[in-house]
Design a protein around this nucleic acid. Structure first.
Lengths: 346, 346
DNA sequence: TGACAAGTTTGGAACGTTCCAATTATTGAG
DNA sequence: CTCAATAATTGGAACGTTCCAAACTTGTCA
């Protein structure tokens, strides 16, 4: 009870220090810490007082050694600097935090080797669950092995071929089709699709929606009108030359940041989206509203998708065995870059 | 050596399972795992083979119990959806990952209560170091107590009063002064400062730079020209009415996203930054280049600041006792929103 | 008063590592 | 062939919790 007694305790303060100080056993301290109703109120208070007095901090690592499961969860993002993924991350983190979990975070920069490393590290930390936006080139087995070992894994934005991992993603084909239909309605016939690589599922789906809209409208697809590239501004920027060369009058972009790049390229040539060219993005990133002209885009509610992904993992952690894919609603958000409000003419 | 032997091992595969399988002791397995030069090559191989065969995964939690220090580090961000902080986070994560550390991540949304919770949680996970962008209203003691307990803590972007914690931040006053001087040179006399709250250190510094530039130019400061508010688009947007009412012809914004909001408000009134109004932001977020008009802003190299912060923590973890503050270089990046290229007229 | 039940508390064996001191193998020299 | 030196290996005690079975307190009732 004396100050001296406390000072003698070298190093970290542990439960047995608390126990000694409060005059009970370490088991009782443990019970108090877990809020057990078994301990008498009076005892609980003695223990709490000791905890405050000694500045005890609970050691979750030690507890986890005994316990079944940690409260750590993994979150691997492929491009955190992309506002879409940043918002996704915000949504994920929010629901995990509310549920008492805390995420280990990694940004892979689309590098599968780096992804493999962080996945290994996270496994070693015994994460209770995992959300991953797979880097391009991720093989299904890489994640399937985790799932097979019993870890709840959900993929976000990119469904991996050859696995049964639940995934969360927006309805890419519907979104792309709607957007393309809108451009067609506005009178465009030579419509391009810009950005993404053919080996990305999301690109397949979005490009697929684009193609199906063309087909329904009886417009022949022109392969020279789909330009592949990393989903970044650079790609959009560089694509403009090709768009002009091919005589395209409008484009649906793989995502908003590609569309920003296109705007940039357009501006360099003194052209303006919405008057000289019909432009639509995908994602409805926060910034889309504030470009000039404001970007018409497909809204996917990135934060909501993140929350959904986290909820799914949480459910799996709690034993819900077969979580299903979630295909998020999309909505065409018509601003000015496409050239006209609903029903208008370019 | 038989399959049966493996199957009998229930639950998680541990070092003793590996040891049994390889016919050595757990100590030897441990040595192998740590890459000790003490073990014979042949033995090392037997052990490695066993590890592969049984699918062993190292348990860092258990190791940390014995070891001095974990390889987990904390990263608390106040607004991850703000691209500036997202880029900062990318920089931080990159250097930690390269150094073999992995960050526990939390987004506080400027909520000190939430921040306190995650800090507690991170402490319980025995993080080896911590970078925090303090939520508004954070008291110095909250973090100082961690530092006092021996944990390496560095604050990013916001220096906390009443502590000796090393911090990493751009040279706010110089940046703001430069930007303001530029507006003055362009002929503006009624220049506003928009965004941030007076109780934020960064706001003080930036606003201070702005005031000092005015003073040097012999322009009397007009309190009605500094408008406070959360550092988001909303604030910029709402501020426009006030700017017009006060007859301001230019504004320096607390950060880029506030400036985006101002652009938006301007556009609603059919006004355009760069022709009808001189506008400068702060941070040089990626998006700043792609708005219309492109935003003149103060470049701070967010990613570089993040890297710097991480390096500082790393040095402290390795025993470098007195890390110093880092004040990052800034540069005025002149685009179009201010009304003219260097030396021109509005 | 004794027996029993319910309410509290407790010792000690895990959990999966690390690390020290001690032991056993191997090598080289004489 | 022996001995010392060096190279490899090993057992067991930590680390700070949880959890179980057991033990101790009270209170109640016949």
């Amino acid at each position: 009870m004396s100050i001296d007694g406390d000072i003698l305790a070298a190093g970290r303060v542990t439960m047995v220090d608390i126990a000694r100080h409060a005059g009970v056993s370490k088991s009782t301290v443990s019970l108090v810490l877990q809020g057990s109703p078994l301990v008498k109120a009076e005892t609980r208070e003695k223990v709490s007082a000791a905890i405050d007095a000694l500045g005890y901090v609970y050691n979750r690592g030690a507890a986890n050694l005994r316990r079944a499961r940690t409260n750590i969860v993994g979150m691997v993002i492929n491009d955190l600097a992309n506002p879409f993924f940043a918002e996704l991350a915000v949504g994920i983190e929010r629901v995990f935090q509310a549920a008492g979990f805390i995420p280990l975070m990694a940004n892979t920069q689309e590098n599968p080797a780096r992804q493999a490393e962080v996945l290994k590290s996270m496994r070693e930390h015994d994460i209770a669950g995992l959300i991953v936006c797979p880097a391009r080139g991720t093989r299904g087995e890489d994640l399937a092995s985790l799932a097979k070992a019993g870890m709840p894994v959900v993929t976000a934005m990119r469904k991996l071929a050859g696995t049964r991992l639940p995934s969360v993603a927006p309805n890419n084909v519907r979104g792309a089709r709607r957007a393309t239909e809108h451009l067609i309605r506005l009178g465009h016939r030579k419509i391009a699709f810009v950005g993404g690589y053919a080996d990305m599922i999301a690109q397949n789906e979005r490009c697929g929606g684009y193609l199906s809209a063309l087909e329904s409208a009886g417009i022949a697809a022109d392969p020279s009108l789909v330009v592949e590239g990393a989903p970044n501004r650079e790609t959009g920027h560089m694509a403009v030359a090709r768009l002009i060369a091919t005589g395209a009058t409008a484009a649906l972009c793989f995502n908003d940041v590609v569309a920003f790049g296109v705007m940039d390229g357009l501006a360099e040539r003194r052209l303006r989206a919405g008057v000289d060219f019909g432009l639509i993005g995908f994602d409805d990133v926060r910034e889309a509203r504030f470009t000039s002209p404001p970007l018409t885009t497909v809204g996917v509610d990135s934060q909501g998708l993140g929350e959904r992904a986290a909820h799914t993992v949480l459910r799996m952690i709690h034993g819900d065995t077969r979580a299903e894919d979630h295909v998020g609603d999309v909505s065409l958000i018509i601003r000015e870059s496409c050239g006209a409000a609903e029903g208008g003419k370019p």
